[in-house]
């Protein structure tokens, strides 16, 4: 964690960030964290799946890019073939920093070990020659704010899913065109049958708390699984 630094114009006045996409820049990832507030934005491109954390205490939501570790089927050389990316991907190599005091304003931190830190002078500047944030940093700060807000709202969403027992384990059989059959395990999805049986009171409560839309968005996102399988087949040289 030592490479995480608070971003300041004094320290990082000449800093440039490599904003291209690519495996060498850390984009070869199978999935990335998404927050319920952005389900609507990402559900058009990626399947949204849920995973129990290792302590089996809480769920996180993930946008799926591939079927094995390090596989990002949206990545083609220097291109990320999608109209949008999850906030947690877009804000790299920045992070939200918080002090002990939960009410203190969040800070922008940066991971100075990230391959996105540019040393060749070809990346995007974070501060201009006068030390003012560039439009790029302004956009990053906006995304960090949205991510932070979404992240802090997420526990209530997952609590609601548990309250109504709306998550079920998910196993996907993937028959690829090279003849192999693969299984994607370890994820959860919205239990559609349970969702159907919820009465008006329960639905009304979910809706009042703003959870209903992300639930349906997550459901709808599963139609991207077949497109992702098609990408996998193309990557294998089939289809």
């Amino acid at each position: 964690m030592t490479a995480h630094a608070i971003l300041t114009a004094e320290e990082h006045g000449d800093l440039r960030i490599r904003t291209a996409r690519g495996a060498a820049l850390g984009d070869a990832i199978m999935a990335a964290l998404v927050v319920p507030a952005e389900f609507r934005a990402v559900q058009g491109e990626y399947p949204i799946l849920f995973r129990l954390d290792q302590a089996r205490e809480g769920f996180t939501a993930l946008a799926l890019f591939g079927f094995e570790s390090g596989e990002n089927l949206f990545l083609r050389g220097q291109e990320w073939d999608a109209t949008c990316r999850p906030l947690s991907v877009d804000i790299q190599p920045f992070l939200i920093g918080r002090s002990e005091d939960p009410d203190a304003p969040a800070q922008v931190h940066i991971d100075m070990d990230s391959p996105r830190i540019d040393n060749a002078g070809e990346g995007i500047r974070v501060f201009d020659e006068h030390g003012r944030p560039t439009p790029y940093l302004e956009a990053i700060a906006e995304k960090l704010g949205a991510l932070d807000e979404g992240y802090r709202a997420a526990p209530a969403f997952f609590a609601a899913l548990r309250r109504y027992d709306l998550l079920e384990p998910f196993t996907l059989q993937v028959a690829l065109e090279d003849g192999s059959t693969n299984r994607l395990v370890g994820f959860h999805v919205i239990d559609e049958d349970k969702l159907r049986t919820l009465d008006g009171t329960a639905l009304g409560a979910l809706h009042a708390e703003g959870h209903l839309m992300p639930i349906f968005m997550a459901l709808a996102s599963l139609s991207n699984l077949s497109a992702l399988i098609a990408r996998k087949n193309r990557a294998l040289g089939h289809g």
Partner: peptide, 15 residues
């Protein structure tokens, strides 16, 4: 402002 942030210097580019 955006271009000033996004463009490399000539020297960085040719190097």
């Amino acid at each position: 402002r955006s271009l000033a942030a996004a463009l490399p210097t000539n020297r960085s580019y040719v190097d």
